[in-house]
């Protein structure tokens, strides 16, 4: 758990972060969102003490971080940044092994961990472990960045616009990947972005920041339904809210389930249980279809979803 109590950061006369209070529960993904210069990155960098805070208190699992050794504190916090910050003179494997090496893990355990992480992030260890960062594509490099952050199994993950520099398709993929990994490892995550869609997609709770203050700290659904101010309303896109709410909910929540999964007829297109309602509706509109089959992860047909249900209860 991370707690910020009346935390302020000044740069000279300018106040970058203005007496904010924020509690991030263990295992949740808190996304700090706001336009550039709103203090979101500054807030993140105060949590791992890359920047000292001017006033207030930051507690990690109840302990004041100023009383802790900064290196020790950071070793327990994975850190992913926009430019990846991979070491260009080290191989992918050595980059990932950085924190375990600092913690003096035995070499066999490090090798095993690197292998495990590359596999987790969908990179083939045989191909990529020996490469240098400049031989990777942007998306691969950021995967390695995430792997490096997870290497020593830290309790906390800090991510500063990690996917900001990637193209839309790669970004989408990595977001999915992060959701998948998060389901497996459940890290307390602080994620900074200026992209509200990314925030809505990844967050358990969103903190909307503006001019150094937290305007609203709530679940994605509440941010959409009950924006605290006009600023938040504009940020989430007033007109677009209905569809955005739909993208928060899964097909599985609204489908009509069969008592038993059945084997699908070949060649039928449908949606997955984990897909969003928005996607399901989009597929229906495209296929001019009122009903779609729903499949589970194994490819078995588990039910159907209808256009009426989505329109009635989707948003």
């Amino acid at each position: 758990m991370i707690e910020l109590k009346n935390v302020t950061r000044r740069f000279g006369q300018a106040v970058a972060v203005d007496s904010i209070n924020l509690t991030i529960e263990t295992g949740e993904v808190c996304v700090l969102v706001g336009s550039s210069g709103c203090g979101k990155s500054t807030t993140l960098r105060m949590i791992n003490r890359l920047l000292p805070h001017s006033a207030g208190e930051i507690l990690v699992d109840g302990e004041d971080i100023t009383t802790m050794n900064p290196e020790k504190l950071r070793l327990n916090m994975g850190y992913v940044i926009q430019g990846t910050g991979l070491f260009p003179h080290w191989t992918v494997a050595r980059n990932i092994a950085m924190v375990p090496a600092l913690l003096k893990w035995p070499q066999a355990r490090i090798d095993e961990r690197v292998h495990e992480l590359l596999t987790l992030l969908d990179l083939d260890p045989a191909i990529h472990a020996g490469k240098f960062p400049q031989q990777l594509s942007g998306g691969q490099a950021q995967r390695v960045g995430v792997a490096r952050a997870l290497a020593a199994n830290p309790n906390i993950l800090l991510m500063d616009e990690p996917f900001g520099a990637l193209d839309a398709i790669t970004r989408e993929n990595l977001q999915q990947e992060l959701l998948r990994i998060q389901q497996q490892v459940r890290k307390t995550t602080v994620f900074v972005t200026h992209d509200i869609d990314e925030a809505l997609k990844l967050a358990t709770r969103i903190a909307v920041m503006d001019q150094g203050r937290i305007i609203q700290h709530d679940t994605p659904e509440n941010i959409l339904r009950r924006p605290a101010s006009e600023f938040v309303e504009n940020l989430v896109g007033k007109q677009d809210r209905g569809l955005k709410l739909m993208s928060l909910r899964r097909v599985g929540d609204l489908m009509q389930r069969y008592p038993q999964p059945v084997n699908p007829e070949p060649g039928v297109e449908g949606v997955q249980e984990d897909d969003s309602l928005r996607l399901a509706l989009s597929v229906m509109l495209w296929q001019e279809n009122g009903e779609l089959p729903v499949f589970n992860g194994e490819g078995a047909k588990t039910g159907v979803i209808t256009r009426e249900r989505i329109l009635q209860a989707g948003a």
Partner: peptide, 27 residues
Amino acid sequence: VDPTVKEAALGMGMSPLRVLLQVELPL
């Protein structure tokens, strides 16, 4: 030396001396 590399090194828990010896000087 790319500032993001130094930031990552520090942020991941390397001491400043280690950053100098293992990252900055080799680069």
